[in-house]
């Protein structure tokens, strides 16, 4: 018996339908993998920090921020530091992200005792995976 004839005997319509759905799902997945393969993904980690809203809780200033890794490489233990300078007063706050994968975002909060005017948030260091 030919291969197709064999399949025709063994497979019901319902089974063909689920095979069809499965193949379209797999086509999307395989298509994406091929696309990633073809598009070069070797940019080193690079971070952008965006300052968000500030709220006051019990006399402290909570500053939201978002860190985005626009490279392809993952950054581990990414250290973010924020500093404000008002006259003689200099204040720093920092946090560490365990993991910022390439092309993704994480959110964090820095806390200050003074109003965070002139706040500068920078990424100080990260470890290579």
């Amino acid at each position: 018996m030919s291969l197709f004839g064999e399949l025709k005997n063994e497979y019901s319509i319902a089974e063909w339908v689920s095979l069809g759905i499965s193949l379209s799902i797999l086509a999307v997945i395989v298509g994406l993998v091929v696309w990633f393969w073809l598009s070069p993904a070797d940019r080193l980690a690079r971070f952008l920090v965006r300052e968000g809203q500030t709220r006051m809780e019990d006399g402290l200033y909570y500053v939201d921020f978002t860190i985005e890794n626009i490279g392809d490489e993952t950054g581990e233990k990414v250290e973010v530091k924020g500093s404000i300078t008002a006259g003689d007063h200099k204040e720093e706050a920092s946090t560490v992200f365990d993991f910022v994968p390439g092309r993704s975002e994480e959110k964090g909060v820095l806390i200050f005792t003074r109003p965070p005017r002139g706040l500068v948030i920078t990424v100080k260091s990260y470890q290579k995976p």
Partner: peptide, 15 residues
Amino acid sequence: VWSVSILDSLVALAV
């Protein structure tokens, strides 16, 4: 049947 088995395995992978 080996040919059926391969098709079934595609369905299994999708699931």
